[in-house]
Amino acid sequence: MQAQLARAHQLAYTFFSDFLRDGPTPAVLAQARASSTLAAALAEPRDTHADRDALWAEHEHVFGYCVYPYSGVYLSPETQVGHDRRLINLYAQFGCGPGPDEPEPEPEHLANILRVLASLCRAHNLAGQQQLLNYLASWISVWTDAVVRCQRPVSAAFACLVRDTIYLHRQGLASAQLLDLPPAPTLDLQSPQTTLADIADHLLTPLATGVFLSRHDLASLARRLQLPCGFGGRALLLRNLLRSAARFGSLTAVCEQLAALWEQVLATRHPDCPWAPRLRTTLHHLASIRLAGENRATTDVPAEAL
């Protein structure tokens, strides 16, 4: 039975990796039918002229444009790929990935991590599986939540399936140890040196806040409040959004909407989950920003000062 289970996990992780890396190719889609949720999402009524195009577009939009499937984005204070040495060390330890001095292209890409995990399953390397599962489980929920918020059915079903498989597999191996997160970057809202850009950058750092704010999140928030946020990277969008919110008297509304998002995520987390304190701290920050904005509005301070 263990061998069958290991084989099942190997197949599952290989499929996940293929889906992420290659997109919805016919071969990948054939395997996707094995999941009832994915199959249901794929069977959604669509514009029949453009089914394949729509799937490809969705894949590109979600995983290429909105929610980046790189562990470094979620686990490094810089929110950048290539900053998580722990993974490279793990690879070196397993002997199945690139060595510390020979990083393969994109070792932090989820597709590559899952491929390594598949090979660990094939090799029945339980210790390796455990460590890599712990690593993945430490951030996969942040990624999955962000994907689900993009409201694209196939991607959402896929991300949930990846997360659930990792959780189930990890629990099956009795890997109950606490998840290990790097320290959270801090934000000093009282400091006069803290700028709008600092606040925006902090809110965009999942390691600090427990949430990955994607371009989809920011754009839909801006649309809901009828605020311009411009175009470009996440940092630019959020800075523009905050600046325009201040200018058009909508800072309170923006803070409320962001807080609602954080509350929603917090409600889904176990109280002992290491992300929970970071989510709560961010809620405090948002409340402070909202208050500061309201005070400044009454004293007619220019929006640029915020």
């Binding site: 039975m1 069958q4 289970l5 084989r7 099942a8 996990h9 197949l11 599952a12 499929f15 395997q31 039918r33 094995a34 999941s35 009832s36 994915l38 489980a137 929920s141 399936l161 659930d164 498989t165 959780y167 189930l168 629990q171 099956g172 998840l179 409600a267 889904t268 987390r269 176990h270 989950c273």
Partner: peptide, 26 residues
């Protein structure tokens, strides 16, 4: 069920999985 079907598609019989809850409330 997904894991079982994957195996079946690959020509294997389905495994039994320990039924434990995830570490997430959601």
């Amino acid at each position: 069920s997904f894991l079982a079907r994957l195996l079946a598609m690959a020509g294997h019989s389905p495994p039994n999985q320990p039924d434990t809850a995830g570490d997430q409330k959601r």
